[in-house]
Design a protein around this nucleic acid. Structure first.
Lengths: 221, 221
DNA sequence: GTTTTAATATGATTTAGATCATATTTTTGT
DNA sequence: ACAAAAATATGATCTAAATCATATTAAAAC
């Protein structure tokens, strides 16, 4: 990680939803940071220092299990918030890790200042609450999928979600990450990907995947 | 469901955290409702009408999958909020169902009035946001458990969580619900329960379960 | 109080998907 | 540019847990 330039004061969640008068204070308390591909932005279990807003790049938010196993909770991109779970009422430890999937620039803000911002900007707090409500719905939907769907369905769902997020039928992701995102192993993903290719539902070349038949993929969900 | 008496204006989340001046308005906008054991309080997929505060009884919050399968997201008891996921920014449909596990009294509040309460009481919104943050952490922890833990571990975790919630080593729950809570089938739960009994980790008589050796159960988690 | 219906008990069978093993290719660090 | 480390490819094997089947018991409903 290294320090990077100043913030444009209009991209992130905070700048968008706080009162205009507050922006000056914001400007004094945020800091751009740059992370190389593969670098850890924050680590599960470590004391919360602040909240991050993603400016450039892609990040995975994941929970580790031992040394080998991993579950990707979500992917984040420009405009997304990272580290917001740190605001809970319990002890202030990050409950997930965040790792840069490509070179990434984030805007970092001290947790105390962010909380002060919330106290002062009730519209901001309300927006953040809505954001949490949405994330909670999604997390619970995923829980159900993990229990009741087979891996093929979860992979189909994962591919469609990643495509929606990238706003494109074509995107890049490693099978390893796909496995961690669908809650399964590399080998199983490898096999099902082969099957989807055979059925001409998707096309793959290296890490690049293209969705050919969205409708048919949807049927597996 | 039938209507029940008035609210004591001090038990629920809303009454506890809103401004005292607001209580009068609250009083005019809430309504006690009574549900018999087994009754549905609200149903996944149906338009959100309001938010519920649990006054008496136990409720399961669950997501259905087809007609047969079910996943219990959480249990709720006195003081807990129900239907709060309805506040998300998307379309206003309940994303989970709530069913009374015993005779239950709730306080119901129209969603529009509750949102007005949030707009006016920023401390309340902040508290609610924290509550969401905690729920999100818990949901994500459960997701990881579903992927990486075996059923024995998830059952141990479930038993300990239910015990913690009841604030007692002894509690009542059907194996069916235990299965839905741990994300598995009745038969599997039945077998592991037998095993735990053999190992003298728990004791069971009908639906009543008593935890004998918390520490050893913990080891499975 | 008897009929339905739902929950429990328990063995037998099946299977999806994890794990293991090993070779090859790609990426990354130095 | 080269060594080391990750990621990929693919078959073989194993196993935890789902499904099926059927009997019994308990709880609700009429």
């Amino acid at each position: 990680m290294k320090k990077a330039g100043a913030c444009d004061l209009k991209t992130c969640f905070l700048c968008q939803f706080c009162m205009p008068e507050w922006i000056t204070a914001v400007s004094d308390n945020k800091q751009h940071l740059f992370y190389k591909k593969g670098e850890t932005i924050f680590q599960e279990g470590v004391a919360v220092t602040g909240i991050f807003f993603l400016y450039e790049g892609k990040v995975k938010v994941h929970k580790q299990w031992g040394a080998e196993k991993d579950l990707i909770i979500r992917f984040a991109q420009k405009g997304d918030i990272l580290g917001h779970r740190g605001l809970g009422s319990g002890q202030r430890l990050y409950t997930v890790s965040a790792t840069a999937l490509e070179d990434t620039t984030v805007c970092f803000m001290d947790i105390a200042f962010f909380e002060a911002s919330l106290k002062v900007n009730s519209a901001l707090t309300f927006k953040l609450m809505q954001f949490y409500a949405d994330e909670l719905q999604e997390a619970e939907r995923k829980m159900r999928n993990l229990v009741h769907m087979d891996v093929k369905g979860r992979l189909a769902d994962a591919l469609l979600e990643i495509s929606r997020m990238h706003n494109s039928k074509q995107f890049s992701i490693s099978r390893q990450d796909l496995a961690s995102f669908a809650g399964t192993t590399y080998e199983t993903i490898y096999r099902i990907i082969q099957e989807f290719i055979q059925q001409k539902l998707i096309e793959a070349e290296g890490k690049s995947i293209t969705i050919l038949q969205e409708k048919k993929l949807q049927k597996y969900c």
